[in-house]
Every structure is written in C-alpha cells, then in structure tokens.
Amino acid sequence: MSSKQKKKTPEQQKYDILQKKHETKRPVLKNCLRAFLVGGIICTIGQAITYFYIYFFNFTEQTAGNPTVATMVFLAMLLTGFGVYDHIGQYGGAGSAVPVTGFSNAVVSAAIEHRTEGLVLGVGGNIFKLAGSVIVFGVFAAFVVALIKTILINWGVL
C-alpha cells in the first residue's frame, strides 16, 4: 500500500475499490505494441536519414548523427506546427515521446502555445516548460557520470 493510500480514511478506501470497478483500464499491452511500432518507425526513418547523409554527403557513421538529429527535430517541428504530432502521440504514446522527435514536440508545442503572451515572456519564458526538466536532469546525470569516471580514472581502476 502506497503512502497516499495509507492517509485515506476507511470510507475513502472503500470508495476507491468501488470506483476502480468502473474505471476504464489503460490498455497496457496495446499501448506497448503501438509504442514499439511507432517508436520503431521513427527510428527506421532516422536510420534512413543517416544512410542518406553517409551516401550522398561527406559524413561518416560517427559524424552523421548530428545532421540526422537536426533533420528529425525539424520534421517533428513541422508535424507539431501542422497539428499532426499530438495525434501521433495519442496513438503511439511512449513510442513518439521517447525519441528526439518527442523532445522537439515538447519544445515546439510550448513555444506555439505561449506565443499569445508575447515573444519574451511567452515563447522565451515557457519554451522549456515541458522539456526543461529533461535538460536539467540530463545535464545533472551527465555530470554525475563524468565525475564517477574521473574518480575511477584517478584511482587507476579504468
């Protein structure tokens, strides 16, 4: 039992059980399959773009990553602006949220949304409303990992 459940009165717990009976369950298996499919398609497109940059431009497998990410972010931006990405998101769930396109969607949707409050306080102030925590904890996680690596190298473990 979670801490939230413990705080509930017996009456509230009884209601919780009754309500759960009527609550539509999240279709977890279906969501997983759809996420696999949508996420897989997005990654396949990304892979195709990588090959495109390798075969038609002067990129290697190591350097093609940056233009690929930029292209995917750009495509997701267009899809967000044309009002398509939220429908993909409703269908694909984590499949469209986890790849870099989901990050792009989070940034662009917030920027579009807050355009009505002006460029500085609206777009500027809110563009990282959703993506901000990804950046904060991503940078922090990278810092911790780098710190551990540095210590291990100094100790001669690595």
Binding site: R26, G83, D86, Q90, G92, G102, A106, V108, S109, H114
Partner: peptide
C-alpha cells in the same frame, strides 16, 4: 494540462 499540440497520450479515463 499540456500545450494543445503536445503529443502526450491521454488515458481512457
């Protein structure tokens, strides 16, 4: 909730 164009998945509830 979220910006209108954000692709979050809404549960059936």
């Amino acid at each position: 909730r979220y910006p209108t164009e954000y692709g979050g998945q809404k549960p059936p509830t």
